[in-house]
Design a protein around this nucleic acid. Sequence first.
DNA 1: GTGCGAATACTCGGATACCGCGTGTCCGAGTAAGTGAGG
DNA 2: CCTCACTTACTCGGACACGCGGTATCCGAGTATTCGCAC
Lengths: 160, 160
Amino acid sequence: MRMGKGVEWALHVLLALAWIDDDEPVSTAQLAAGHDLPPAYLNKQLQALVRAGLLLSEPGARGGFRLARRPESITLMDVVAAIEGSDEAFRCMEIRRRGAGADMPASAFRETCAVQSSMQRAELAWRRELARQTIADVRAEADAHAPGAGPVLRRSFGRD
Amino acid sequence: MRMGKGVEWALHVLLALAWIDDDEPVSTAQLAAGHDLPPAYLNKQLQALVRAGLLLSEPGARGGFRLARRPESITLMDVVAAIEGSDEAFRCMEIRRRGAGADMPASAFRETCAVQSSMQRAELAWRRELARQTIADVRAEADAHAPGAGPVLRRSFGRD
DNA sequence: GTGCGAATACTCGGATACCGCGTGTCCGAGTAAGTGAGG
DNA sequence: CCTCACTTACTCGGACACGCGGTATCCGAGTATTCGCAC
């Protein structure tokens, strides 16, 4: 199982926008240069964040992206759902009904498949932990680990 | 993010073997017929389970697979790791060092990337929940939901 | 009837194609800013 | 000096190729069984 790299990019971009903390929008080119990412493909991921309501986009000259909400209101679950989609990683195909299970009465399948519910429990724990953490939390941890990172990034975006 | 269907197959096969609970090995063809799965591809997944030490294989006529350990000693984490691999879903590419981060002193990267540690926390919760549940737990839940499923499946394998 | 040996049928195991999705890129529609002339 | 319309340059947004990993399949190596034959 593998998560697309777009999630990592989106998280770093949101963290950068939280650090910049400015009403002026930031263009895709600037955000891409800030982490040395392919601009066109990054743009694709940013569009997904706009569709999810995490970013606001402004077209035209001096346009770009800015946070749609405060960093404390953007959870990691929001970001993962925006990029990877809201579907569950484990999708039950109900194979219990096929083969030998075809001979069983329909009432036997009233309850949820035990395999599915087990996997769902684990995935729920994952989603719960993702929903518990916000971009603001990540920024706070990053500031605690490396206090200089925020200002350096702000300055590289010409916001001082 | 999407988990391969091999995991679901493996879980159902292990559950079936736990229900059968016999020293006589079960062939790929029988296991595949039990859930109407493509035998050749199922065989591929079973080989992964053998490599992971969850199943024992016996070649030759009347050969097949049987559980290498008791169902209580096989966690869902073991199964997922056997099929999908042990790599983390979120792989940090250290993009914080690229772009603007290149101008920072190396000491700033002493601590782990905050984005990575946040995602790792969530994934750890997932793995912890997977490791907490065993095939025996799944069997118990399935028996509680549909008591007839186990015997029916046992009988379809000609084990009575 | 019994022991032995070869033929046999069945099993796992790895090597081999196919296909969908993530990855990466490009060009067009739209907009705000800048510019110049006219009043 | 102010207003206004035009040009311009820059932005986002969606449509278009490429490559890799999951999906699916087949055939070969190896072994227990089974059948036939000799004793």
